[in-house]
Amino acid sequence: MNGERNFYIWFRQGQLVAAADRLDGQGLLAMIHRRGWLSTRAATRITEVCAVDQPAGLCLKSQGILDAEQLKLLFRSQVLQQICNLFTIQEGQFQFNSKAELPNSEMTGLSAPAKEVTLAGLRALQDWSILRSKLPEPTSGLVSTVNHGGQLRLSQLEAQVWEFTKGTVSLEAIAQQLQISTEKIQQVAFRLIVVGLAEEVPLIVEPPMSSFDMEPEFLLDQPVYVNAIGQSDNQDQVSQSFLQNLVSFLKGKA
């Protein structure tokens, strides 16, 4: 296939531990080499003496060759680079192999929750063309799906948008209030949605009804667009006996 590429991400107990676009186990060492911290040859020689189940990064640290800061940097760029790449793919397939072995030579020993990495990957994303059709509509609003956004560290802008997750303000209006482009706000909203903090709710354009003289009953019937989830329903309920009869009737067909 033309231009087919594979990306690999390894997880351990739900935490992301390594990422690479190759399976030869040389990705991390190549990165170290590129930074001029150690030649691939020397690094390979050193990691050969590491314990079999020890992540290469940890091993190099225990030998005094890399420090904690360098490991963090490596992990960050290793993971970010791969995840960010994933968001620019137009078409792809994924496979999940629950029996894969951990690639010690690609591991720094650090790990991060998938959501955090997703968030970071999307923050770093420059080219949004592939995701454009997935972005929430400018006319939609956001509602929060959790009680507080505390589990994840949000950027300042994300936190600002998070303040609007009551399902009453459209993304366009948020953009206007924050004086930031609508597209940027759509991207921020997308991040909040993808990591499960918020979800998109379409706000119906309310018909202008200013000069209509309406009967009170008609007013009562007017849709209440701004109400949040769980508005009370004054709908006529069907009786339990009705429901029971319906179920036994349907069981005759099922």
């Binding site: 509602v143 399902g167 979800e199 849709p223 989830i229 769980g230 508005q231 329903d233 709908q235």
Partner: peptide, 13 residues
């Protein structure tokens, strides 16, 4: 999911 949240925002049924 967007359809569902549209519905859920209007009615709790």
């Amino acid at each position: 999911r967007r359809i569902a949240s549209f519905m859920n925002q209007r009615r709790n049924i």
